[in-house]
Design a protein around this nucleic acid. Structure first.
Lengths: 234, 234
DNA sequence: GCGCTTACGATAGCTTCCTATCACTTCCAT
DNA sequence: ATGGAAGTGATAGGAAGCTATCGTAAGCGC
C-alpha cells in the first residue's frame, strides 16, 4: 500500500495518466474520438481503458478535472493572494469559457456537460468561499450570496455560454449581465437556498475538497479528486 | 400538393404525429427509451421512424417543440393581453422549469439539451420582443436589453436549472438572481451584442416565426416549426 | 376506378459503446 | 529472487443507433 498512490501499482497509475493525456489530445483535435482510438493513442488496449474508467463519461470527467486542475487552480491561488475578488470570479468565468472554446471535443464527449461542470466546480467550494467572503467584506458582492451559490452560478454561466458556443462579445455581455445581479445594492433579497444544498456543501466541500458529488456519481474515485491543501485559501 | 400539409400524404402526416405522441409518452415514463420501443408504441416500424426523423435528436426536437407549443404558446398569448411583462417572463421560466422537471426522459434523450432549448426558445422571438418592449416602456426591465437577449437568457436559466435538476427553492433563488440583473437601474451598461446575432435574429425571427436556427440544423423542416400569426403579439 | 407516386414493414448489416473472459505479464512485499 | 496479487492485451459478443434494400400497400391526381 504505497500511501501516495492510493495503493495502486505504478504501471496502473501511469496507464491511467497516459489515458487521460491521450483523451485530452484526441479531444483537442476537435472530435470526441472512439474509445479504441483513445486507448490506441495511449498505447494500451481498450479493456485497460475500461478498467480505469467505467465509461466514456467517467474518462471525460477525469479529463475535464485534469484541465480544471491545470488551469483554474493556479488562477485561484493567484486570486486569493491579491486583487478584487469580484474581478477574480470574472477572470475565472472568462478563462473557463475561453479554454472550453478550444475543447469542443471534451464537450461533445460529455453525456451531460452541465452536470459535469457543476460537479467539478463544486470541488472548488472552499477557495470560492474564501473569495466570496473577501468580496463581501469589501462590499463588492451582495451579502445574501452564499458559498454554495458560486459554483452553481459559475456553472450555469459556463454551460450556458458554451452550448451553444457564444461569441466572445456575447460571452462578455451575458457574464456582465449576471455579474450585475451580484452587486451589493440589489433590488430584492434572494429567496433562500435549499437547506439540503447548504448542508451538503458544508459537509463535502469545507472539510476536505475532494469529490463534492460522490452521491450522484458513486463510481468516481476520491483519488482522482482535485486536491487543495486545507486552509490554503484563507 | 395539399397546401396545408406541405404536400405529404395524409397517412405519413398521421404517422409523424403518432410518433411524436408515442415518444412523448415514452419520455414521460422517465427513460429515453429505445427507438424501437417508440416506433412500437406508435404502431409503426423503426424504418418509418427514421423516415420521418433523421435521428433521435431530430425526434426529440420535435417532441420538445410540441411540448413548448402546447404549454408556452397559450401562456404567451395570455401574457401579452394583460399583466406585467416582467412577471410574464418569470412565469414562463418557472412554467418551463416545472414541466421539464417531469420530462427527464426528454432531457436524457437530447444529445444537446442546451442547443435544443436555445433553438426552440428563439422561435418565440417575436412575442418575446413584444413583451420586452412593453416591459421596457413600463420601466420594468433595463433598456439596454434587446429582443435577442430574451430567448438566450431564458435558455441559459432553463438549462442551468434543469441539468442538474435544481430544487424548487434553488430555482426560485437563481431565477430571482438573474431577474435582479434585468432591473432598469443597472450598475453598468451592457457590452454590446454580437452583431451577427442581432442580424440573424432580425432576419429569421421577426419576419415569420419559424425555425430561427435553420443554419445550425438544416435537417429541421419548416413545416414542423411553431407557427405564430404575424403581428399576433402586438 | 386506375396508375403513379409515396410511404410502408421487415430485415440484414454496420458502427460504437460496453461487458466478460482468459491466458499471460508486471510489480512489489517479503 | 520469488510467489502471489494486480494488471494487461486480445478477443468475443451483446445492445443500440443508424443505413440500406426490397417487395408491398396505401393515398391521391386524374
Amino acid at each position: 500500500m504505497t500511501s501516495a498512490t492510493g495503493g495502486r501499482r505504478r504501471d496502473a497509475l501511469a496507464n491511467s495518466e497516459r489515458l487521460i493525456a491521450a483523451a485530452r489530445k484526441v479531444f483537442a483535435s476537435g472530435g470526441q474520438g472512439s474509445l479504441e482510438e483513445i486507448a490506441g493513442e495511449a498505447g494500451v488496449g481498450v479493456a485497460t481503458l475500461y478498467r480505469h474508467f467505467s465509461s466514456r463519461e467517467s474518462l471525460t470527467r477525469a479529463v475535464y478535472r485534469s484541465i480544471m486542475r491545470d488551469e483554474l487552480l493556479p488562477l485561484l491561488r493567484h486570486s486569493c493572494a491579491q486583487g478584487s475578488a469580484r474581478q477574480s470570479f470574472l477572470l475565472i468565468v472568462e478563462r473557463l469559457l475561453e479554454l472550453l472554446d478550444r475543447e469542443r471535443g471534451l464537450i461533445a464527449s460529455s453525456a451531460d456537460f452541465a452536470v459535469l461542470t457543476d460537479d467539478l466546480l463544486r470541488e472548488f467550494l472552499e477557495p470560492f468561499a474564501v473569495l466570496l467572503r473577501h468580496a463581501q467584506e469589501a462590499n463588492e458582492i451582495r451579502a445574501d450570496l452564499q458559498p454554495y451559490d458560486i459554483p452553481r452560478v459559475l456553472s450555469i454561466l459556463v454551460v450556458g455560454l458554451s452550448t451553444p458556443p457564444a461569441s466572445p462579445a456575447d460571452r462578455r455581455r451575458y457574464v456582465s449581465l449576471v455579474f450585475d445581479a451580484m452587486r451589493p445594492d440589489q433590488a430584492e433579497p434572494l429567496p433562500p437556498l435549499d437547506e439540503k444544498d447548504v448542508v451538503e456543501g458544508m459537509r463535502s466541500g469545507f472539510t476536505a475538497i475532494r469529490i463534492a458529488s460522490s452521491s450522484r456519481h458513486p463510481e468516481s474515485s476520491p483519488r482522482e479528486g482535485i486536491h487543495v491543501q486545507p486552509g490554503e485559501f484563507g
